[in-house]
Design a protein around this nucleic acid. Sequence first.
DNA 1: ACATTAATTAAACACTGTTCAATTATTAGT
DNA 2: ACTAATAATTGAACAGTGTTTAATTAATGT
Lengths: 201, 201
Amino acid sequence: MARRSDHTREELKELILTSASKIIEKEGFSALTARKIAADIGYTPGTLYNVFQSMDGLTLVLNGITLEKLLPVLANSKDSNKDKAPEEIMKAMARTYRDFAINNRERWLMMFKHEISDEAEIPEWFRGKIALLFQPLEDVLKNHFSFKTDAERQIAARSLWASIHGIYFLHETGKLPLLDGKDVCENMTDALIDNCVKGLR
Amino acid sequence: MARRSDHTREELKELILTSASKIIEKEGFSALTARKIAADIGYTPGTLYNVFQSMDGLTLVLNGITLEKLLPVLANSKDSNKDKAPEEIMKAMARTYRDFAINNRERWLMMFKHEISDEAEIPEWFRGKIALLFQPLEDVLKNHFSFKTDAERQIAARSLWASIHGIYFLHETGKLPLLDGKDVCENMTDALIDNCVKGLR
DNA sequence: ACATTAATTAAACACTGTTCAATTATTAGT
DNA sequence: ACTAATAATTGAACAGTGTTTAATTAATGT
């Protein structure tokens, strides 16, 4: 029996999240089970339920961490290209997002596979993290284009983002046949961004 | 014991698919289990495995049917708007796709939740059905715009499609916060299409 | 040292997909 | 018509899953 003073509640939480991340990255989201995590950290499944409400709750926290990893990467991509034309900044950001998706494939896929069970609402803290993610792109739009209202700019940012994501996601899940070429996706998103910028001017 | 002459192999297949569709539409993809289908049609789980290779195989067939339902709906939307400007035809098609997604929500979501296990390839017959889906949009592009190569037109069609899908999908799965307004999605896709058409001219 | 408190566990429950030997129904052959 | 071969169907089992809870064990306060 693991001694209860081996780890504080916080350490335990960290252990679980680290182990879970390891499993996801090695074997994918579908291999993430309570018993596997427990065995890995030297506890039993029940202990997980002392720290997290459910596997669903744990998944949500893990997805939150993924969002937190992505945010600075995107912001940094924006900043290190800030002297270029807006369409070039956005193209660089799109590539950054794609690279993140490829380098963190399983974590990235997990965010879209996971569905909160029983129609439970996505909690506010998580919606907040998603909203933050649009900020870098919104900043670019704010710096280079004019919008009648904030809402319109937010819509433009989300629209462009969802489009780019849509292309990468369908491509990565094998649902865009005939587009196996490596650069095709880049061409698609580049064209999309160019059109979008033309439309905004 | 169900008598083996109660239903031919074909009838049995039909029974299973009908029952599965019913369960999906009522309770969602996650409620679709072998035992539930079997109980519903008066057989035992094992019989399902005589007709389908696995639950995964059954899911793939069901997704194929969904694609087959969607194709004529889209083609019809194109045809009944053929005298309008290309951007209006495409907007109508986008709305048709959205309506299909809403009216067949669980079936639609299922196509993107399902992941073929064990890195097995998506079979050719399924890839073919996906490819067919892009045909109506490709036709519109062919009738109203000129492309250097067929490949370029295919890429344009897939790119626009994936973008529109990306917007609807993220919206419907609650991953586009701050965009709860009913018409916002329409505005987003309309703007996207207008920009795309501007870019193509 | 003892009583209290709290973490940890083992076991159970109700599920899942899947396999396979045994059973049962149908067909073919005599 | 009766039997032998064949094929559909089943029930039981296996190895999993998330989750709950009573019992156990460890740490703490007195």
